[in-house]
Structures are given as structure tokens and as C-alpha cells.
Design a protein around this nucleic acid. Sequence first.
DNA 1: ATGACTGCAAAGCCTTTGCACGCAA
DNA 2: TTGCGTGCAAAGGCTTTGCAGTCAT
Lengths: 156, 156
Amino acid sequence: MADVTIDPMKATRNETWIEHAMQGLADAGYQKGAARRAVVECLGRQACAVTALEIEEEIRQGDTAAGRASIYRTLEQLEELSLVHRLEMGTGTASYEAAEPGGEHHHHLVCDRCGRVVPFQDDGLERAIKGLSRRSRFEVSEHDVTLHGLCERCAA
Amino acid sequence: MADVTIDPMKATRNETWIEHAMQGLADAGYQKGAARRAVVECLGRQACAVTALEIEEEIRQGDTAAGRASIYRTLEQLEELSLVHRLEMGTGTASYEAAEPGGEHHHHLVCDRCGRVVPFQDDGLERAIKGLSRRSRFEVSEHDVTLHGLCERCAA
DNA sequence: ATGACTGCAAAGCCTTTGCACGCAA
DNA sequence: TTGCGTGCAAAGGCTTTGCAGTCAT
């Protein structure tokens, strides 16, 4: 029985996406300021969704720094260009993750006890969503799936 | 081609759920105060998810009234007892809807232009989620699916 | 009579906005 | 040089909490 979850550790610095995103921002007329670059690089480094405040924290611990406002502004620009995906997983705080140009993506399992978030991927789910999107009256462009429950540690 | 969306107008006052919820609250040791009852009745009257502030508004227009704090407190209690389901659909505000005892439920299409929310139901989707939940390492108890895009009015 | 329920107001968080200064092009 | 980018601080919006009066049991 194949596990649908994705090993969060497998992610390495996503240089491809970082360049892609910087290029997209440039094409949209944005300059390459320090804060903007720091946010993009931070996002490219993540294995899964992160909050704006987590990005702020991580950037602060690095060599650069970025004001909170600049982080939110950059995230807004990236989302507008479909370079990042903004999610709300029931925690009351928005999370952001890099949007792969190929459309490849994953969804999330959230532990309601400890808050752990684990990404997963499933072709059957994607097919089901594609099919019902076609049967709906909407022009569907995005979708989010969040599973809630207990992670293996908390369920034990 | 069968439409997966559900007619939001078909919902009528869900007396069954209202009684079920009031009973659940009573079993948990809660009293039958006016504010609590008003929130439960308002939820039982909804066709789809509503925000706390929409509940407040609707209650105010009725004969009763309820303070904002009481509304949030009641919603929290109902959610803890799994009598309501709390959702975040990317709007930055939480929504709540009655949780049917039988487990029957729907998901949501959100128009990113006008904000309209339309419920839908799809067995294939439910099967896919049940299957992958089994293959995950989580003990999955709930799931939310939100499709984003443009509604037929905004897409035109 | 006792303890739960309620509402108001204040406080908390996350997020957005206004504004003056600094940097990219 | 010009205007975008940035950071600070203040403002906004939703949600939670403290507290004193009120109501259910």
C-alpha cells in the first residue's frame, strides 16, 4: 500500500522556481529590491506552506532582513501573478507556497492536535476534481483540499 | 451531464438538526440560554456556510438578539461537539455550517471575483478522499474541498 | 440560591495602509 | 533624476477574553 504523503525532507532549494518567479515579477514591471528577493528565495527554499510570519522569522535569521509590510506586499504580488498559492487551512492564518509552473501540486493533512502539516499527492483525487470541475457551472482555476485529523504521533 | 452543484434554495428550516444540536449541547451540560438557542436556530436555517458576523446580522433582524461574544462562544462549543463544521475558504474569515449527524455534507465553489459561494456534492470525490485517507498515516476525521474560479455570471 | 449565560468593552492577532526615506534603473 | 521599493508605525477587521449583571435550574 503506497503512502500518499510526501516526504517533506526531500525538498531542496528550488532554484528553478526562484528564477521563474523573479522573472515573472520583472515581466510584470516590478524591480528587484532586497526585500522582494528575500521573500522569493525564502519561498523557494520551503518544502511546504509557510505563513507570512514564518517567512519574516526565517528571513530575519538570515543575513538579510525584510519588513513585515514588504513581505505581505510581495506575497500579494506573487499571488496575483499566480506564482504562489495562498491557502487557509483552518488555523486562522494564511499560508503561502510556491506554485510550480507545470501545475504540479499537492494538498495538506493537518493534525488538529499538534498543528503539524504534511503534504500529500493523489492522482485519483486530482482526476475526481477535474471531472467535477467540468460538470460545474464555474470556470474552475484552482482547488484546495485539506484533510483534518490526528497525525501518527498524536493518534498513538 | 448532471450538474454537481446543489440548489441553495432547496434548503428549508432544518428542524431535525436544530433539535439534534440543542440535545447535544444539553448532553454536554450546557443550558438553554436565549443567545445560544438563537445561534443554533440561525444555523439550522442556512442553506450553506455563514460567517459569525452574518449570523449576528441575521439574528439582529429577528425578534431576538445576541451579543457577538455569545455567538463566537456558541460556535466554538458547537464545533467542539462536532455539531458544526468550521471552514476557511480563502476569504480571511471563518464560515460555519451545520454538521449533519449522518455525515452527509457538501463542499464549496468560490467565485474569486464576486465572492459568491455555491455548494456542490460529488460521490467520486468522496470516494477518492476516503481511499487516500486510508493510505495516509493520519487518522483522518474531516476534510474540506474548496474550488476557486469564476461563477457563470462573472465568467461571462 | 448558585452557578452558568450574556453583553459590553477592551485586548489580541493577523493583515493592510499611510507616509517619508532610500534604492533601482 | 524619477519613481518604485522599503520599513515603521498606525489603522483595520475578525476573534477572544475579562468582568459585572442577569438568567436558567
